[in-house]
C-alpha cells in the first residue's frame, strides 16, 4: 500500500497518468460516433466493450491496427463484444477515415475537451496531444477486466483482446 501511494504521488507530481487496470470501474463517457449521433459507454451495459484508443486517424500504424480489427469483428461479435475506436480526431475526420478504410465499427471523437476521455483512462500523451495506443476490455457490468498500453509505434494486434474475451467467456484455449 505504501509503495502504491508512493507511485501515485510520484505520478501525480510528474503529471504521468497511469492506465486504468483490471477490476476498475470504466469511467462513463458520451462522445460523437457520427457527425450527428453521440454514443454513451453505459448504453452498452449488458454487453462487453473493447475500447481501442489510438493516436490518430490516417497514420500508418493506426491504419494497420484498425484494418486488422476490422477483420476481427466477427470474432469480437462471437465473443459478445462491441469494439469502439477512440482518438482525439474530429467526427468529420473519423467519418472520412472510416469511409476510406471501410471500417465497420464506430470511431469516437474525444475532441472537445480534447482528450478528456483518454485522460480519464490514464492514456493521454500530453506531449503529443493525442491518445496513447491502449486497449481495454470492459465486462457487461462496466468493469475493466483487461487493459494494455502499447508503445505508440507498435501495432498490438488482436491476440490480447481475444485472449481476454476468452477468459471472460471461460473458453479454454
Amino acid at each position: 500500500m505504501i509503495c502504491f501511494n508512493w507511485i501515485q504521488q510520484f505520478t501525480s507530481l510528474m503529471k504521468i497518468d497511469m492506465i486504468l487496470t483490471a477490476h476498475t470501474s470504466a469511467p462513463d463517457f458520451e462522445l460523437f460516433a457520427t457527425p450527428d449521433k453521440k454514443v454513451k459507454l453505459s448504453s452498452f451495459r449488458g454487453k462487453k466493450v473493447i475500447l481501442s484508443f489510438y493516436p490518430a486517424d490516417w497514420s500508418p500504424v493506426c491504419s494497420d491496427q484498425l484494418a486488422v480489427y476490422n477483420e476481427t469483428l466477427k470474432y469480437f461479435q462471437a465473443a459478445g463484444a462491441q469494439l469502439l475506436g477512440i482518438s482525439v480526431d474530429s467526427k468529420w475526420s473519423h467519418r472520412a477515415f472510416s469511409e476510406d478504410r471501410h471500417l465497420h465499427f464506430p470511431l469516437l471523437a474525444d475532441f472537445e475537451p480534447k482528450g478528456a476521455v483518454a485522460k480519464q483512462y490514464g492514456v493521454y500523451d500530453e506531449q503529443r496531444g493525442a491518445a496513447q495506443r491502449a486497449l481495454f476490455v470492459i465486462d457487461e457490468k462496466g468493469i475493466i477486466q483487461w487493459s494494455y498500453l502499447s508503445p505508440n509505434d507498435v501495432n498490438p494486434g488482436a491476440d490480447g483482446i481475444l485472449e481476454a474475451l476468452d477468459t471472460l467467456n471461460n473458453v479454454n484455449c
Binding site: 484494418a67 486488422v68 476481427t72 470474432y75 501495432n155 494486434g157 491476440d159 481475444l162
Partner: peptide
C-alpha cells in the same frame, strides 16, 4: 488461417 493468425498476434 486468418483466425489462427489473429490469435497468434499477426498485426498486419
Amino acid at each position: 488461417d486468418l483466425e489462427g493468425g489473429l490469435r497468434s498476434g499477426v498485426n498486419g
